[in-house]
Design a protein around this nucleic acid. Structure first.
Lengths: 114, 114
DNA sequence: ACATCATACAACCTTATGGTTGTACCATGC
DNA sequence: GCATGGTACAACCATAAGGTTGTATGATGT
């Protein structure tokens, strides 16, 4: 068995909901169970449980049994995977800027096509 | 008029689609119009145009008229806004780790409750 | 063993999303 | 002025997403 390749559709999809982002934030401390998380939101327990499941499938949180609760903890590595993709876009952008300035630097007046 | 506050639902929602992420990547060079972008994907022009509109409303690309085309360009600042949110989660996580190690450092054996 | 707390999951409803086709709107070149 | 290239948008369709209630499973404390 292998570790799953990052599923960016799921990752960003999971982050595209205010409630889920708030769960990610709260679960950083990794001390609340699903019911405790649910108490913060104006929706049913089942709805919050679904949100947690979505975050879990996206690799953004993990659940661990403690006593009769299941404690939800944010998976920082998952967040980093998402961040790295954004970083890659930024790198591509820098690369383009570099090529542009290089073009400007090598083109002007005499030194064309060195 | 004010600049709009970041709408993370829209931002991450826009990034939660493979085609749109690919458009973001392609539009970094900022040289293709909507029709040219559309030619890369196995779907109708209208579908791609919708994707571009979604990216635009999310603040991830801008459109600029050049001749009869409208050239699509990735808005790097938009990407940075999304990235910063992920960074904030990471900071919160570090803060928690710091508090934990501090707790471990001040608690052990004799020096309890100094 | 049993009542109970915490979680999981199925069935259902409503609205959003991603795709389609068709039509209307602007610039450009002749 | 008019054909055309490029874009925008409306109407529609199928499926996914976010919510609900209800029921089933699992671990704890007495």
């Amino acid at each position: 068995m292998q570790i799953a390749p990052p599923d960016f559709d799921r990752m960003f999809g999971a982050l595209a909901d205010h409630t889920r982002r708030d769960i990610v934030r709260r679960a950083i401390d990794g001390r609340e169970g699903v019911a405790e998380l649910a108490s913060h939101y104006p929706m049913s327990f089942a709805a919050v449980q679904k949100h947690v499941a979505i975050l879990e499938r996206a690799g953004l949180v993990t659940k661990r049994r403690i006593g009769r609760r299941k404690v939800v903890r944010t998976n920082v590595e998952g967040l980093r995977v998402a961040r790295r993709l954004l970083d890659q876009y930024e790198e591509l952008w820098r690369g383009r800027i570099d090529r542009m300035t290089e073009l400007v630097a090598t083109t002007p007046s005499e030194e064309t096509d060195r």
